[in-house]
Structures are given as C-alpha cells and as structure tokens.
C-alpha cells in the first residue's frame, strides 16, 4: 500500500460519505443520477466476487464491504425512502443503463486476462466503472446549476481516479510484473471523462463563484 493508493481510497470513501450525508441529512437527492448510482452498485457487486474466494487483508475486506453497503444504500434511499425519493428528478435522468452495460459486458468477454467467470466479471466491472459517471455528467449538464455537495461528490470521485493513476505509476516502478493494460486504459478513460468537469470546477473555485456548467 503506497500513499497514492491510500489517498485514492480515502477520497473515494469521502465521495461516498458526502453523498450519503447529503441524502441522509438534507433528505434530498436533487442533482444525483440514480442511473450512475445503480451502475456503481453493479460495479461493486461484480468486482468484489472475490470476497468469497480470496482474502487479501482486513483493510481490503472492510473497504469492499463499505463500498457494497453504501452503494446499495444510496440506491435504496433514492428509490424507496419516503421523502428522499420525491426529490429525484426522473425526467432529467434519462440515460439508459444497457447502452453502457451491454457494450462493457461484450468487451469483457473479448478483452480479458483470463477467460473465467470471476475474471470476466472483474474486467466487466472495470469497463463499467470507467463509464458509469456518464449519466451523472449528463444530468449535471442538463440542470447546469449544481449544489455544493453534488459538485464536491463529483470532484472527490475525480480526485480518487487521478490518485489511482499515480498509484499505478508508483507500483509499476516498485513492483515486479506490475503491468496491467486493461486496468490502466479503463482507468485513464474514466479519469479523462472528468477533465471537462474539473476545468469548470476549478474555474468557479478560482473565481469564487457558484459552479455552473455551460449549456
């Protein structure tokens, strides 16, 4: 475990906590894409199948459980909570899941490191995570006006991805046989998707004005 990896995991954790906190305290999920949250729940459910087969460390197991429980709780809140679900803007959040899920699954069947169920699910989760933020970014573009917590949520997710890239560079130079093209390319694609959002986030931060995306 290196410092970039730990910092990456912590910003990832913070992003989830910010979102849960927003939903739990304000009792609102305005500006949050349910589609993205459902895709993340699917990402974790398919990636962490190794919870049943491999033990890596207590840290690893705990973090996996936290991400699984939190992602499914967020989906539950938006879909079923008596008050929260009323703030969900269904008409704006129109991205279709299968546009992302299907190509990712087919790609995982073709491009993977090993043709086994566990490995294909793991690869699928990497591809899906790379694009799972798209419904959220589309929703942000549509509503344009973003509250602070939603902005911070997306910012923290982007920070997590950037730190993971530094982690890979560090591991490449310090660990033998650490070459993982599938992980790197899907991770890079994922990080690049945030580039546009980051640009406007920093602009608004620098000028000390509320974050607003151009139409």
């Amino acid at each position: 475990m290196n410092i970039f990896r730990l910092a990456g995991d912590m910003t990832h954790l913070a992003s989830v906590l910010v979102l849960l906190l927003k939903i739990h305290t304000i009792k609102s999920c305005a500006g949050i894409s349910l589609k993205t949250q459902e895709l993340y729940a699917l990402v974790f459910a398919t990636r962490y199948l190794d919870l049943f087969t491999d033990y890596i460390s207590l840290y690893n197991t705990l973090m996996k459980l936290i991400f699984l429980v939190s992602s499914f709780s967020i989906v539950w809140y938006i879909r079923h909570h008596k008050i929260v679900r009323r703030s969900y803007d269904k008409d704006q959040d129109t991205f279709r899941h299968y546009f992302l899920v299907l190509p990712c699954f087919l790609l995982a069947l073709v491009i993977n490191e090993k043709f086994t169920v566990k490995e294909i699910m793991w690869t699928f989760s990497l591809y899906l995570e790379a694009v799972a933020i798209l419904p959220q970014l589309v929703l942000l573009q549509r509503t344009r006006n973003i509250d602070n917590l939603t902005g911070q949520y997306v910012f923290l997710l982007g920070a997590y991805r950037s730190l993971y890239i530094l982690n890979w560079i560090y591991r490449y130079f310090t660990e033998p046989h650490y070459v993982h093209w599938i992980t790197w390319i899907s991770g890079l694609v994922q990080t690049l998707l945030y580039a546009d959002f980051f640009y406007y986030y920093f602009q608004s931060w620098k000028n000390n004005v509320k974050l607003e995306l151009p139409a």
């Binding site: 990896r5 996996k64 993971y164």
Partner: peptide, 10 residues
C-alpha cells in the same frame, strides 16, 4: 493474490 497483481485494488 500475489505481488504485482492489480486484483488487490478496490
């Protein structure tokens, strides 16, 4: 998961 594998990542 042996050293050098990215499967220990979250």
């Amino acid at each position: 998961t042996q050293k050098g594998s990215s499967h220990d990542e979250l």
